[in-house]
Nucleic acid binder design. Structure first.
Lengths: 191, 191
DNA sequence: CCAAAAAATGAATCAAGATTAAGAAATTAG
DNA sequence: CTAATTTCTTAATCTTGATTCATTTTTTGG
């Protein structure tokens, strides 16, 4: 079953000729991945970028206290990769895992670089996508530094009520930077 | 006095013809700004991007407790703007201020958009720059979530000893997300 | 449908860092 | 050179959220 996939997303930002669209399709690989399966594990070099057509991914690492620490989620129409590893060629320190059964489009860094040469317009698409991602992360830092954990929980659940339903609470707690126990405590206060 | 400016930085990532270089020069404005002067204040719409040729900028806001909270520094060869305001046209909530007397290159969003049309190659430059900025912010979030404030202080001062000397301690404390008092406490332990 | 695993809750104690309130040191401007 | 402002430090107390450990609830797989 065909998802409203990558090229549709690209066409929201730039126009594509049929030829260009085909060049893109030739460079990418669609895959279906099951919940809990991994796209990347620590010590492996990250060689691909992933676009979520359907489903949800998380990027996390194991901190010193041996807890999972989620850095980022990606849902429909978001890209995810470990740019640090991808750019440097050094091993990643992250796990990238499907939180739900997901439809993913992957492209290797090599293929993407070729694609940038073949379809230079794509630079624009990625520039815009990257800029949005940066702005979102910037805003996240603002919230981390300006709200208490409890405030951030309420703020986040106000902004993304649907997403709250989609992932286990302990993952949200991790993403928001506190413990599941504390999350329970907040929720118990007022529902 | 001419700084090794923007076009030199651009040419680290893409090649430019003399014509293209001139087109860029025509679109930008160089300015010298004094320490403590503002490039952006809250309630104003951010209409420009700034590139630091020399000096240092900070982006901060006033939090609920009426303290300055620094979101980001920019030193030589970094861009700074409020993408949220720039993209949406809504008023910013940030101050952007020179931490040192600085040499800045500014370009309006309008001019930059024109420049992208005139010199499409620039999309690539900004895509790469944007990607690095995103990766850096991502890494920052990782550190926020995986280290204690004290650890983060030591980590940061290990990575950027020169920068530590450049800005007042209370600004570093703010950037790292804790109070100047706590910073003094850490420093008193062991120097 | 049931057993096992995963996820959520609860309560007691603890620790990192904030807050408050001085005061000392360093910078800056006139 | 000196007053004024800015920056840094110290110490006592307070708060938020972590830790620990146990239990309950929910989900999943066979």
């Amino acid at each position: 079953m065909m998802q409203p996939g990558l090229t549709d997303h690209i066409k929201k930002y730039i126009s594509l000729t049929d030829v260009e669209e085909q060049q893109i399709r030739d460079a990418i690989t669609a895959k279906t991945i099951k919940k809990k399966s991994f796209l990347l594990e620590p010590e492996h070099v990250c060689k691909e970028l992933y676009f979520v057509s359907k489903g949800c991914l998380r990027l996390y690492f194991i901190n010193k206290k041996l807890n999972e620490q989620i850095i980022l989620f990606a849902i429909e129409n978001w890209w995810m990769t470990d740019y640090e590893s991808l750019d440097s060629g050094r091993p990643s320190s992250y796990y990238m895992q499907a939180v739900e059964n997901s439809e993913i489009i992957s492209i290797t860094k090599t293929k993407l670089d070729e694609l940038f040469t073949a379809v230079p317009k794509l630079e624009r698409y990625f520039r815009i996508v990257q800029q949005r991602a940066f702005a979102a992360t910037q805003t996240r830092i603002k919230y981390i530094y300006s709200m208490s954990d409890e405030e951030r929980y309420h703020h986040f659940s106000g902004l993304f009520p649907a997403f709250m339903q989609r992932v286990p609470q302990y993952m949200l707690a991790s993403y928001l930077g506190f413990t599941p126990q504390f999350m329970s405590k907040i929720r118990a206060k007022k529902i």
